[in-house]
Amino acid sequence: MKKSKLHQFIFTCAMALVMVYAMICYNIALNIGHMTNQIFVLALEELVIMWPIAIVLEWFFVEKLAVSLAMKKVDHQKDSQQYIKLTICSMIVCIMCPIMSFIATLLFKDAGIQIIAVWIETTVFNFPMAFVWQIFFGGAFVRKMESYFIRQIA
């Protein structure tokens, strides 16, 4: 089923919300050394800044590049739709994680002249979480909800 631009935009917003919120919670927990209930509230402050940034990046730049890269890795004749979707999701993480980590480093970390080192460290810490969260949890949840709502309106 072909998605309308509105459907694509709503999906992008939902995916960005789930990914950004989880990653902010994760980074706050890393910074303080443990997870607490307060982190869920603290993350809302950064979410107001980072969520729109993620939407804009994804909508205008990352998705097109990720799809282009993923299509070089898949065989439409042999590979399942699920495999193709997961390949695209993986490419999105590979692009978004360093970009969003850089933006977070600029906005929320006092890196000073160590900005490159702090950015690389942040990306290295974030990538495994972003990948696992996208493929197995948050991203899977949003894709499942998308399928559910498509069935409801069809």
Rank of each mutant, 00 (worst) to 15 (best):
K3E: 09
K5T: 14
H7R: 10
H7G: 08
I10Q: 01
F11Q: 08
T12N: 15
A14G: 08
A16L: 07
L17W: 09
V18M: 15
V18H: 02
Y21S: 04
Y26F: 14
I28H: 02
L30E: 09
L30N: 05
N31K: 14
H34T: 10
N37F: 12
I39N: 07
L44F: 11
I49L: 11
I49K: 08
I49T: 14
M50V: 15
I55T: 05
I55Y: 09
L57E: 01
W59P: 07
F60D: 01
V62D: 06
A66M: 02
S68H: 12
S68D: 13
L69F: 04
L69K: 09
A70E: 02
D75P: 12
D75I: 10
D75Y: 08
D79A: 12
S80L: 07
S80K: 06
Y83Q: 12
Y83I: 03
L86Q: 06
T87V: 05
C89Q: 15
V93I: 13
I95C: 08
M96F: 04
M96D: 07
P98Q: 06
I99W: 00
M100S: 05
T105L: 06
L107G: 06
F108H: 11
K109H: 12
I113C: 03
I115C: 04
A117P: 03
V118A: 11
W119V: 03
W119Q: 11
T122R: 05
T122N: 12
T123M: 02
F125S: 05
F125I: 03
F125Y: 13
F127T: 04
P128A: 11
P128L: 05
M129A: 07
A130T: 10
V132F: 07
F136Y: 07
F137W: 12
G139L: 05
G139D: 07
V142G: 02
F149V: 02
I150D: 06
Q152C: 12
A154F: 13
